[in-house]
Write a protein that binds this DNA or RNA. Structure first.
Lengths: 184, 184
DNA sequence: TAGCACATGTAACTCGTTACATGATTTG
DNA sequence: CAAATCATGTAACGAGTTACATGTGCTA
């Protein structure tokens, strides 16, 4: 019974062996689009996964002041991951700082409201551009959109597609909000 | 400097005085659509807001085994809330359990994948229906969509509109995903 | 008369962030 | 030679969840 973070790490290791450092970079991108964790959380979690026999490690040549460890998912780890993926779940409780501010937007003047929404709009535009670059990279590598659902490439593509859809919808909402702030 | 939760509570109290119990119900709905908190977090936070002079309370007649306290936002509380709303912020780190599962969906068979995505689709449909009911209630009460940005009603409407847009986009993605799982 | 809504609070725990700690190799 | 990257770990703190605790009045 790995934690959610544990399953995120298993999901990365199922795609190939990696060091803790590499895992923490991948937790920023691409996993960071839907889950985050810092290295101070990752190293203890890797130790816990190893205690449970879901991953194993070997010490390899490296450049840090400590040993460099390459982790690999075990057969038990693969089973645990697949079991977790197919498990019924409760959606994560939403935490949207921006919407919380919008809920109280009536307490500030128009100029401050515009600034807040315009800032969000810019962020969404930047994120859309980033996702489009990622998608283009996948399509170049695979000669078009991946269509085979049981490949990692297809899952990368599917999550990116969802991210794009989310960001575009969020940007449209900002546009609507800005016109509402102009009128009124 | 109230915490995010503190500002959520100030946002509710800016709309009118309420007891801790009422606040914890409103944190489920409508605030729960974008932020959550349990009563065990709310009561200590109200005490902290009161220490900082952002809210005050009076004991009123009530039915529980303890005193019933009605909280009211202070002038300092209103200023703190407006200041927080207009403050630059970092978007909350995303936590999307479902997308994390999708990232590893290639590790399970088609049937399990379909079940996962179909479950999510049903949830989104239910949430859309709930939001539509809420929106209808607002439109009946105000005789159409609120257009005046410096009213609580408009902010309720704006957050609902965002929620609807999010859920519809999510449902469409599920539909796309299901067709991809059929082919392949 | 059983269960729910009201009504508030504390305790133990887990999850997650920020800061501290160390030090080699590569790049500008 | 300064800064970034590689590379791992611990400590202190804050945020959030679950369980414990108490007791009334209303409704089915």
């Amino acid at each position: 019974m790995a934690s959610t973070l544990g399953n995120a790490l298993l999901g990365l290791l199922a795609r190939g062996p990696q060091t803790g450092y590499e895992l923490s970079r991948r937790m920023k991108r691409p996993i960071g689009y839907f889950w985050t964790a810092s290295h101070s959380q990752i190293y203890p979690e890797l130790a816990a996964l190893e205690r449970d026999g879901l991953v194993s490690h070997r010490v390899i040549a490296g450049r840090g002041p400590r040993d460099t460890k390459r982790y690999r998912i075990t057969a038990a780890g693969r089973r645990a991951l697949a079991g977790w993926v197919a498990t019924a779940y409760e959606p994560s409780p939403p935490k949207d700082d921006f919407m919380l501010r919008v809920y109280s937007l009536w307490t500030v003047d128009r100029a401050a409201a515009r600034t807040l929404v315009e800032g969000a709009r810019v962020r969404h535009e930047e994120t859309i551009a980033e996702y489009l670059r990622q998608r283009a990279a996948i399509e170049v590598e695979y000669g078009g959109p991946p269509t085979e659902p049981d490949t990692p490439a297809f899952c990368d593509y599917a999550t990116l597609r969802r991210g794009l859809s989310y960001e575009r919808q969020a940007k449209s909402w900002c546009d609507w909000m800005l016109t509402a702030l102009d009128g009124g």
